[in-house]
Design a protein around this nucleic acid. Structure first.
Lengths: 250, 250
DNA sequence: GACTATTTGTCCGTATGTATA
DNA sequence: ATATACATACGGACAAATAGT
């Protein structure tokens, strides 16, 4: 008793060690976007492993969105700038395997968007305010043009608000969750009979939100943004699950 | 002009096709957790590819947390139950390469936790209320025991609230972001001179939040939870960035 | 613009340690 | 305890693709 306490050893695969090392180099900034990795043959030399092992490591790094390799490229794999693609991927599988309901997703968007508006009302620059204005203008024009343009302008508005929140996590989460929601129902909105009425209503609501952001009334902007999103999406949420959304309104 | 519009063709790698097919089978539920994939040799037969190609596909699936394979396992790779590990991984790299500040992370936690409390105040069951009560009891006992136990009880409280929100996305995001925050500063809290005072204050605040949840006053619970988290973490956030956190307090 | 060298994508065969029956 | 099937890792090979001459 009281002897040395040993830790269980996890046998770690060779390719994992390679992933860890390259990942560390990229995340620490030692290997920035645009930089190239050595060729696979060079890497097998540096790590003293076979090419298959190097390739398995590269596949993992590619799946995580850190690098990209093309056949025949003499410069080796390219270190990519960060994109939320990997985040988007795992969120999407989360949504599918956990059976996330549209209600849960929209509710989460309401949380994110209202928080972004709350912060934006205090932190927005005049330039960002102008962007939001321009986005609403484009929404007005798009009522005639078509739903795709309308949706794009709507996205631009919410992105401007998210940027104005000055929180990159809110920005990126907004982006990821929104694209999942739109994948689920943009088709249904585009074909809805009352879509023109829905668009006009949405524009009025966005104007009210923007007014609150302009005057710096954060809580009002937050409340209005929740209402805006509820009115826009509630029709596509099963009636029984709408109560959960309304819990965010009052 | 006006001829048929052709789409650019992306040459898709063989291993990607395999990933897509197996991924689809898993996410659609056709291949549930615990089920086994065919052996690598069987797979090379079914997909008509070489061993290396099969292995690269399996590495990607493993990186996404969908399967796990062990050497010698006669049953083939195992389909795993969903865990937010992949989400956690991409969030962590996001935090590192985007240089997310502690302030942004704590701010995001405030958003998530206050929303969870808002919903929990309306939707919580009596059992969940009892769990929150028990967690606060454990926090009280842990003041003497040590910071690790205190932190674990604190986590249990917030998890109970997140579950009570009945939104799985809020639950999982809470879990992921919290673990990143704690990785960053739990060491500093554990060694802080005033940690006992901080713990006692935190307990009082949690009691107030729970009281609001108990009486069903969602907005109050949400406001108090933001205040609780601010008072607990603000000391570790650089002074210049605290203003952004206070913007959520009003 | 065609040619050449290099690189990646893919395939095949083999050796080794491991887990299950 | 033995046998079998498995994953891990190695090495060599060829075709397609790319960049630079």
């Amino acid at each position: 008793m009281g002897g040395p306490r040993f830790e269980p050893v996890r046998t770690v695969r060779a390719y994992e060690r390679i992933v860890e090392q390259i990942e560390e180099a990229i995340e620490s900034g030692a290997l920035g976007p645009g930089r190239r990795l050595p060729s696979e043959r060079d890497l097998m030399g540096q790590f003293s492993v076979s090419r298959s092992t190097v390739r398995e490591a590269l596949r993992v790094l590619q799946a995580r969105g850190l690098v990209r390799s093309r056949p025949g490229d003499p410069n080796g794999a390219e270190v990519l700038p960060f994109t939320p693609a990997a985040l988007h991927k795992s969120m999407t599988t989360l949504a599918r395997v956990q059976g996330l309901s549209l209600a849960e997703l929209v509710q989460f968007r309401m949380v994110l968007d209202s928080s972004a508006n709350l912060l934006a009302a205090r932190l927005r620059t005049d330039e960002q305010l102008a962007e939001m204005d321009a986005a609403i203008d484009r929404m007005r024009e798009a009522v005639e043009t078509g739903y795709d343009e309308f949706s794009a302008a709507d996205v631009a508005f919410h992105d401007a608000v998210a940027r104005a929140s000055r929180n990159k996590l809110i920005q990126i989460s907004t982006e990821v969750v929104r694209s999942i929601v739109l994948d689920l129902i943009s088709g249904r909105i585009a074909e809805a009979d009352d879509r023109v009425a829905l668009m006009r209503q949405s524009i009025r609501h966005h104007e009210e939100v923007l007014a609150a952001v302009r005057t710096g009334d954060g809580p009002l902007a937050a409340r209005l943004s929740r209402r805006t999103m509820y009115d826009y999406y509630a029709g596509y949420v099963p009636a029984g699950e709408r109560a959960a959304l309304r819990a965010l309104l009052e």
